[in-house]
Design a binder for these strands. Sequence first.
DNA 1: ATATTATATATCAAAATTGATATAATGTCA
DNA 2: TGACATTATATCAATTTTGATATATAATAT
Lengths: 99, 99
Amino acid sequence: MMKKIKLMSFEEWEKKKLKNPEFRKYARQADDDPFVATALQLIRARKKKNLTQSQLAKLAKTSQEAISRMESLDYRGYSLSVLEKVADALGKKVLITLT
Amino acid sequence: MMKKIKLMSFEEWEKKKLKNPEFRKYARQADDDPFVATALQLIRARKKKNLTQSQLAKLAKTSQEAISRMESLDYRGYSLSVLEKVADALGKKVLITLT
DNA sequence: ATATTATATATCAAAATTGATATAATGTCA
DNA sequence: TGACATTATATCAATTTTGATATATAATAT
């Protein structure tokens, strides 16, 4: 991890992903589904900081796998405390609203 | 559960609770701590609908204990999926923002 | 085009949450 | 005020999440 790679930007990544019908199906739910919405926010924030999942995992004191799961649009099992840890490592604060 | 009792309103409840230094200590963190903020929002929403924890638990297909834990200002373990279930039972949508 | 690195996910053990039951302390009602 | 109901939480089993390891596929670097 001496060499810093340049990750694809969120926008490029999203554009690429939207070519996949499966991804499109999920992405359409972002407004209604806190998991999908959160996953996309996490991916955006991570790519913005140009961190790999492994690097973020290290900063958040969790595992690369946990990060991957949380970024997956169809994973719905993680805890709020893991989310808070990861968000913190991304320099973000978690704001939860019941609307 | 034939007879509907009248729960103390959130405002009254909060006023009463704020007399306790321990509660005050936690309540002060609501702006910085998603758990505290969420707990208070859950309590407010539940009392607004005049539901007991048991009634809400039933609607959310979870347990009274789970509700109590989530409403506790010092509990930090629950999953986002349980939160979503409970919010849904309260007629609320969970909105998560990383700010 | 090839070498290297990142990501998604399978397997499974370890850790944590959830639920059932019970109950003391607190709240509501008659 | 006493009877009844609600809430917070202890104990512990059942269930789920997290982490370690591994690896096929995809992305990035050269």
